[in-house]
Design a protein around this nucleic acid. Structure first.
Lengths: 152, 152
DNA sequence: GTGGATCGTTGGCTCTGCCAACAAGTAGAC
DNA sequence: GTCTACTTGTTGGCAGAGCCAACGATCCAC
């Protein structure tokens, strides 16, 4: 962004879609910078977190849970496998599938990214009081859940 | 997104950065579809709205107000000028500058996009009550303003 | 004047989110 | 059992948004 003292048009300032995309851009900047310093990007964190919470899974399942397209999962896992954060093994029960497993190094990397992210949440929500943060989270959860359910 | 009944990890569900980026993706999908049907994209609307609110301006000023990089302003204006939505004229007072003016067709196009966007706001915030929508807007405004000011 | 800043422009890069097609494999209907 | 329909991993491609570096031209302060 090329921010400045010039104020954007009122039309935009009051549109929820603009506010959300601005906030997302600001958040993305923070997250991307933080993750880049750790040699990762958004997709990597999502996959690592999904793997730790649900255990080993097929690539397709990972994609569904992390909301990442199958084809993008391939690329991200290639990068992560090259760094030994993750292991790809064929599923003996269904030979179409690969079973993806988190390695100890992957778990360590996840912890690292968790720390980065925690700091970022704080910077992102800096202007809000704790109850306001909860409120924002709750409202956004309702919105995202609504649209997630509406998409079969 | 490849949405599904599979729930994302709790780690993500509670992170503000994830919620915001998810909401942004959902919003972007709606806006992009609506605008595409009208032959536009986000940058076009931002520039049109800025032009109508502040009147004719240089490309650099437009970019600052609409939060778009100078180089991206060039591309967007090329597309819009080709459609006669906008006019590029050299500034006699400063020959580095172009003065961009909204044409009547551009104004009509803006109205059209305004309508599209209004419908989308409603779809986007569907699960929230009117007071909740105000609250969300207010909280997001505080966040985005904070980060806009923090970036000189 | 001269140096530093600004403007438009070109060209390039990344990340995120999609979509289409394919072969290999599985599972259901019959 | 066979045939059909679906799933899985993979490749390759595309668009939108956001950014950065460099260029010549121009302006402005000193």
């Amino acid at each position: 962004m090329i921010s400045d003292d010039a104020r954007p048009p009122e039309r935009l300032r009051h549109a929820a879609s603009w506010l959300i995309s601005q906030a997302s851009a600001q958040s993305h900047r923070l997250v991307a910078d933080g993750f880049a310093a750790a040699g990762a990007r958004g997709y990597h964190y999502r996959l690592l977190a999904t793997l730790e919470e649900y255990g080993p899974a097929s690539q397709a399942d990972l994609g569904r849970r992390a909301a990442i397209d199958r084809s993008d999962v391939v690329a991200a896992l290639n990068e992560m496998a090259a760094k030994k954060l993750v292991e790809r093994a064929p599923d003996p029960a269904d030979r179409r599938r690969n079973i993806i497993t988190l390695t100890p190094a992957g778990r360590r990397h996840l912890r690292e990214l968790d720390d980065v992210l925690a700091g970022i949440q704080d910077a992102l929500l800096a202007p809000l009081s704790p109850p306001e943060r909860v409120q924002l989270t709750e409202l956004l959860t309702r919105v995202t859940d609504h649209h997630a359910k509406t998409r079969p």
